[in-house]
């Protein structure tokens, strides 16, 4: 039950994009088409879940054990870069067309603040190993959800007569604002 709450909190009520402002760059950049957005979301979810696990290990068995809190940022970012490299290689092996479709966005997951943010939140919340993994997974799911919803809307926006100054980023941001307003409906729900 606890784990379910962690999952729902990470994916819905404290959605990483719409509530925590993490992962805005890919959200603005990769959310133009549904299939691409979904693939990006999947890749990100994978990196988030696996990084969460490794980060927990690093935090518990290295940083805390040897008393090196000041190396936290450096250590985490290195872990994340390594995992993104891994994911990139895996995707390339599994599906060449997918690799081509995601293009530059894969290495960009490294600079996705959502991942580093996730890494930093885990020691802050003091999650156990299982909780960290679920948290990472939930964060990824929520991220994917927001991306896919936005992509669905932006796909249709191509046919609309949006005033010129609003085209592109301003419109995406305003839609994101409305999505954030909609998600406010979930507040207070985690005390289930």
């Amino acid at each position: 039950m606890e784990l379910l709450l962690v999952f729902l909190g990470a994916s819905i009520t404290n959605n990483f994009i719409l509530a925590r402002f993490l992962g805005i760059c890919p959200f603005l950049g990769v959310s133009k088409e549904v299939p691409t957005a979904f693939s990006m979301g999947l890749a990100t979810t994978f990196v988030m879940t696996t990084s969460a696990m490794v980060v927990w290990f690093v935090q518990t068995f290295i940083l805390e054990k040897f008393g090196l809190p000041y190396l936290q940022y450096v250590a985490f970012i290195l872990v994340i870069s390594a995992f993104v490299q891994l994911t990139e290689m895996a995707v390339r092996k599994i599906s060449e067309p997918l690799y081509k479709a995601l293009g530059i966005f894969l290495p960009l997951i490294t600079t996705n603040c959502a991942i580093l943010g996730l890494a930093l939140l885990i020691p802050l919340k003091g999650y156990s190993f299982i909780e960290s993994t679920i948290f990472g997974f939930g964060a990824g799911v929520g991220f994917t959800l927001a991306m896919v919803l936005m992509a669905g809307m932006r796909e249709r926006l191509a046919f609309a007569d949006v005033p010129e100054p609003l085209q592109g980023a301003p419109m995406t941001l305003i839609i994101a604002g409305m999505m954030a307003m909609a998600f406010m409906g979930f507040s207070g729900m985690i005390a289930m």
Partner: peptide, 28 residues
Amino acid sequence: PAGAFLTMGIVLAIFNVLKSGSTSEAEC
């Protein structure tokens, strides 16, 4: 958060109007 997105979007749109004279591209 909602207000952050909305404000940024609106301000960006206003800046686009101000810049519409020059030829710089807004990079997405």
